[in-house]
Computed example of a mutant assay.
Amino acid sequence: MHRKRRCLSALLLLVLLIQMEPTFIIDGGPEFGVNVGAPVRFRMWGGGKGAGIVRREDWDSLSDWGQFVRGLKFGSDNAPLGVWFGGLDSYSLLSGHLVRRYSNRANPDYHPAGGFLTGTLGPLYTEAFVSDVLGARLMGAEFSLDIEHVFFGKAKEHSRYTLALSAVRDWGRAGGRAPSVTLAHADAMAVVVVRPDYEVHLVAGWGGRPGEHGAWGAVAGAGLDAGTETLNLRLRLEARRQQGGFRQGFFGADYELARFQAAGTDCAPLADAGFPDGYSAFGEAEVGWDAVSYGGLYRHLKLSLGAEAFSWGRFDVDGRMAVQLFERSLEVALKGLGVGMGQPGARYLGAAEVRWRFLGGKLYAMGTGGTLLFPTAEGTLRPGAFASVGLGVDNAR
């Protein structure tokens, strides 16, 4: 009798680790910065026979050495050329119709340094990225052409009417072998309302999988970008059509796990998994609020939430929130991911972090906990959980 393949491994390991994270930072202003360092985890207990003192899975590939680069910045979005290297967390490639809310370190045993480049030349704006600068993995680019600039010269309000073309390929040769896949997408965007504190735009696009007959998708939607001294707000709402296995946001928050095994019951990699034809509604909100118009990286409230509901009964959601309380002495951060909800084989992940600052804010105590999924050599995902407590010191808030 044929036995159905199990999608999740039942192996459970209990390991006690102590982690040290030396860090070196140079803040050179808005167009230069260096942040290097890496978490080094020493095994105190558990791990099985033959386990070394340093957790081997953190350093067993060339790509893992990329985790030393926490952030390396040259230029900025406002400069003609900008380059950034480090971990990619909730990264979207311009329009976001191929790469949206992607994190390159969702696999707990894979720690690459990614990077992206932005550049402007006349009416052409380009963004290119790689998920792993030391391995053949995700690579892509999007080219956006300012139509008004082409026909009438540089306008006061740039990029009001644009045409864009993007393409992304996963070579599947680092961070564990997985099927390669290529996607492309074309977009048109028009900013229809411009006010001092906000603007509204409309977008429409079409994409597909080159070489895969009948694999295509279409999208139409609207967005709002608003900004005041205390509030930054971005809203997106889109109606989508999927056909033949293509979908918008293919390289998303769950991709580093789904490339081995997509959510569902067939246990297949995402590149080969069946995806029903149908429609979906996608919404995204990003909110940054600060009560005192604080100009730093951290705010009293940061919220990022993306959700997609499909006509055939599936629901995906990815969100994260961080709040600062008691004069910024206490910070609480939550994040969660649900993929394939409403269908058999749904996938859930979550984590929380609490950080309490004292002695003027430079010293802090923290506690974290959450769930993980570890890809195995057999192509399944092994569930796990983590919890940690620690102390730290910094001078950047």
Rank of each mutant, 00 (worst) to 15 (best):
R5M: 07
R5H: 05
A10K: 13
L13T: 10
E21M: 04
D27N: 12
F32V: 05
G37R: 08
A38C: 10
G46W: 07
A51R: 03
V54P: 02
W59E: 03
S61H: 05
S63R: 06
Q67H: 13
V69N: 09
K73I: 14
D77M: 09
G82I: 07
V83D: 05
V83T: 06
D89A: 11
S92K: 11
G96A: 09
G96R: 13
R100P: 05
R101A: 15
H111E: 09
A113S: 15
Y125D: 11
D146L: 03
I147H: 07
F151I: 12
A155C: 00
S159W: 09
R160V: 10
D170H: 13
W171G: 11
R173D: 07
G176Q: 11
S180P: 03
S180Q: 13
A190C: 09
V191S: 07
R195N: 12
R209S: 08
W216C: 12
A218W: 04
V219I: 15
E229T: 08
N232T: 14
G245L: 05
F246I: 02
F246E: 04
G249N: 11
A258F: 05
A258H: 08
R259V: 03
A271C: 04
G288D: 11
G288C: 01
W289A: 05
K302H: 10
S304R: 11
R320N: 04
Q324W: 02
E327K: 00
A333S: 15
L337E: 10
Q343W: 10
Q343M: 12
E353T: 12
V354D: 07
W356T: 04
L359N: 10
G361K: 06
G370V: 05
F374M: 01
P375Q: 00
T376P: 00
T376Q: 06
G384C: 08
A385G: 07
R397A: 09
